[in-house]
Computed example of a mutant assay.
Amino acid sequence: MSDVEVNFEGPIFDGRAAQAMAAYCDDARDSIAEFGEQHALNLMGLAFRHPTGYYESRVRTELVAADTARVHDSGVVYGPWLEGVGSRNSPVTRFPGYFHWRRTKALVQARGRPIAEQVLQRHLPGMR
């Protein structure tokens, strides 16, 4: 009878891969949220006719779950009107809204995966 010794080594077995994957998930979430916040603010800067700066200063990104970030306007009362979904928008008034959040959401959905793939490249060495 002979004995066989098997050694398991490497990032999968010592926990480095799991740590790198967790760091990647956090980094991807944060990068996508930062892209969304910056895009929304850029749209506001381009579209708002008489900006006071208050509304833009209320835009925040917050974690709502371990894997979810939300970009929002902190509940500014006239936010729905600026977006175009308020009760005072067209047809009640001529102002249709700027649609900055809808446009941002569509772009984040389109670019989220490429952003995450780019972030992955920074974390791959820790998974090897």
Rank of each mutant, 00 (worst) to 15 (best):
F99E: 14
R29T: 09
V77K: 14
M21E: 05
A69Y: 06
V6N: 00
Y24H: 04
A22F: 07
V85I: 14
L41T: 07
D67N: 14
I12T: 05
A23V: 02
S90C: 07
Y54C: 01
A106Y: 09
G84N: 04
G97Q: 01
G75H: 07
A110L: 11
A110Q: 15
S57I: 03
P80C: 08
F8I: 08
R94Q: 14
R60W: 03
R103A: 12
A33C: 02
H72S: 12
H72K: 06
V6K: 00
G53W: 10
Y55N: 12
S31G: 01
R88L: 13
I32G: 01
R70W: 03
V59Y: 00
F13P: 03
F8E: 00
V6G: 00
E83N: 09
E5R: 06
N89I: 03
D3C: 00
A17H: 00
N42D: 15
A18I: 02
R94Y: 09
S31T: 04
I32P: 02
R94N: 11
P80H: 10
V76K: 11
I32T: 06
F99Y: 09
G86L: 03
E62Q: 12
R29I: 03
W101P: 03
H100W: 14
R49D: 10
S31Q: 11
Y78Q: 10
A28G: 05
P11E: 09
L63Q: 11
M44K: 09
F13R: 01
V71Y: 03
R111F: 09
V59M: 12
H39K: 14
N7W: 04
A40E: 06
K105T: 14
D14K: 09
G53K: 13
